[in-house]
């Protein structure tokens, strides 16, 4: 079988050209970087790595009835704004305000559950409005031992574990663009889930890699995550 290419799919990450030399894997209706070189990327992930999860499903809901809607659909919701919870299926729910939630898909089901939430939502009389987070935001995963130090070069919020524990959410500015940083590890691997303006991701990707350089940071694929 010929290698997968991003342009074979109608849904594309703005970063797909930067991933031209990577091996891609299928992810729902699109593709995602499986790995770059031939070697195991696990040590890279433990040290310092950047993954593009832009093609993985995510969606937002906002409104007075959003919490009720999501509870009915089986989600556990964070108690307070700027907190996040990982669900039993590996997807995540971050609460961004009193009435706003951000749902992040899981690699385990290739984002299917969250993608279904987006597809299945209907405009109705209840105050629960869908927010097109998959299109408005790119999704990057910063992993490894140095995530707080990397972000300290770009961002004025204290993201060390003692100030920004697992489950914390920061809506802030990094490298002069707005970002949402969520501290949700993958198992034992320290991870910041970073959502930034989709149109700025080419800029932000380079800014992050530059900040990661002193820690030996590299882009990586999802194979080593699974």
């Amino acid at each position: 079988m010929a290698a997968l290419q991003a342009q074979q799919f109608i849904e594309r990450s703005p970063l797909y050209r930067q991933q031209a030399d990577a091996t891609l894997g299928r992810l729902g209706d699109s593709v995602i970087v499986a790995h770059y070189g031939e070697h195991d990327e696990s040590p890279q992930l433990q040290r310092c790595a950047l993954l593009d999860l832009t093609n993985l499903a995510r969606v937002g809901f906002r409104g007075a009835a959003a919490a009720e809607y999501l509870l009915e659909r089986g989600y556990q919701l964070p108690e307070a704004p700027n907190r996040a919870l990982t669900q039993s299926d590996g997807s995540h729910v971050a609460r961004l305000s009193q009435t706003e939630y951000l749902l992040l898909g899981s690699l385990r089901d290739a984002g299917a559950r969250i993608a279904a939430e987006e597809a299945g939502w209907q405009f109705s009389e209840t105050a629960n409005y869908l927010l097109p987070r998959q299109d408005s935001h790119a999704w990057l995963l910063l992993t490894g031992a140095h995530i707080a130090e990397v972000m300290a070069k770009l961002c004025g919020v204290d993201l060390r574990p003692e100030a920004f524990p697992v489950g914390a959410v920061a809506q802030t500015s990094a490298a002069r663009i707005n970002v949402i940083v969520v501290n949700l590890p993958e198992g034992e691997l320290p991870c910041f889930q970073i959502l930034c303006d989709r149109a700025s991701v080419a800029y932000f990707w380079d800014a992050l890699l530059d900040a990661m350089a002193e820690f030996g940071g590299q882009p990586a694929g999802i194979d080593a995550l699974l």
């Binding site: 594309r12 703005p14 770009l154 663009i177 149109a199 700025s200 800029y203 530059d210």
Partner: peptide, 14 residues
């Protein structure tokens, strides 16, 4: 410091 000059590109930029 390191200059940060954000830019935005549309999906059709390339």
């Amino acid at each position: 410091g390191r200059g940060f000059d954000p830019y935005r590109q549309t999906a059709m930029h390339q």
